[in-house]
Design a protein around this nucleic acid. Structure first.
Lengths: 210, 210
DNA sequence: ACAAAGAATGAATATTGATTCACTATTTCC
DNA sequence: GGAAATAGTGAATCAATATTCATTCTTTGT
């Protein structure tokens, strides 16, 4: 025998794989999945196109993995915001703000995760992602209903409305950002936007104007 | 001279063109713009692929026209609902219901009009469509603010939230219409769904639980 | 240093559809 | 009927990318 897989090689391989994932993430952040070409990813990662296929079965599989990682990051942030101390409505508001602000910071990625049409394997990941969100928001809304901070309602349906209102507000205006070379919005506009959305959402949830 | 365009021919041509438009509409209703292949449209319309190019500059132009027609139809319905007698909130509620019910009836088309990524020329039409909606809802919200049925708020932003909440509920991946093998939902479920969305939206707008 | 095994390469291939265009068919008018 | 003009056809072409695979380069153990 001559060659056997060694620790050093395993690590080098893992690093190459990671670099491919990172560069794919960068490409997607820039123009969405659809415009992320294998050749561009390969060039960025400084490997040959063929190399990508030693690490991933197909473009679709690579994308599914990148999607999974990206969403995990987002969902974690929201979960974190919901897990703080305080009453349910405050925590929900905090979580919505987190969601909205992150989407504004990375509008193309937000659009890709929420709305861009993707291949079946990626769509499957998206379903899990939506379910994770739904579960988080729903849980909080249920808790709110229980201790009467929030009037009785279909928690699952309301959480869908929350996501929709935010997504449309952020992704709608910002997704043509890929078309024109859209510049990012000014900080005070961003704040007004986020506050406006949150007011609508919290009011839709609780009926309370604050 | 020998041949000159005659009325009969003009009509026949117009009919062929109309048939192409109709079949494109059908294809889009079925699977969105992206999956509407020229070959399939041609087959449906019972013409050769080349014929389509005698009536339209390109696939994109054909799609732009179909988009324009489809949205005109939708916007007209909402405008109609808003133009009835009664107080603003009742009319807004009526319009939202119209919007939601139509989207449920044709979820794929609704998704195509609202969220599917499309080519630039079609995107341009979508912008007009959004503006038309924004103008309609906004106008009503402004009117409501003026005569104090609705608290002061960013009318344009609120109208975006309305569209988003409905769109996500009806055409998002978690919507009942898509989740199961898109068998149409039962009438009473549909009603509950629409009522639930509308409650959220009206409450988001007015803060009033009814 | 060498042979065996694996990893990387990237030009060539495959695929998927839109679009073209040389040709055929139809309509019109004499 | 026949010539001129236009309409319709659909196989061939083109374009844009994902994917393959024969070849080259690296690593490893003796």
């Amino acid at each position: 025998m001559a060659y056997r897989e060694t620790e050093k090689m395993r690590q080098r391989k893992a690093m190459a794989r990671q670099k491919i994932v990172d560069c794919t993430y960068a490409c997607v952040s820039d123009g969405g999945f659809r415009s992320a070409r294998i050749t561009r990813i390969a060039a960025l990662a400084d490997v040959a196109t063929g190399t990508i296929y030693r690490h991933f079965e197909s473009r679709e599989d690579l994308f599914a993995e990148v999607f999974r990682l990206a969403t995990q990051r987002e969902v974690d942030k929201v979960a974190e915001a919901l897990a703080t101390e305080g009453d349910v409505t405050a925590r929900l508001e905090h979580a919505l703000r987190q969601f909205a602000e992150r989407a504004i910071r990375g509008p193309v990625m937000a659009w890709s995760l929420i709305a861009e049409p993707v291949d079946p394997k990626v769509e499957e990941e998206r379903l899990k992602y939506r379910r994770a969100y739904a579960a988080l928001f729903e849980g909080a809304i249920r808790e709110g209903i229980q201790n009467q901070c929030i009037p009785d309602q279909d928690a699952s349906q309301s959480s869908t409305c929350l996501v929709g209102a935010i997504a449309e507000s952020l992704v709608g205006p910002l997704s043509p950002a890929q078309a024109d070379g859209n510049v990012s919005i000014a900080a005070e506009d961003k704040d007004r936007l986020v506050n406006s959305i949150i007011r609508f959402c919290m009011q839709g949830l609780t009926g309370a104007r604050n």
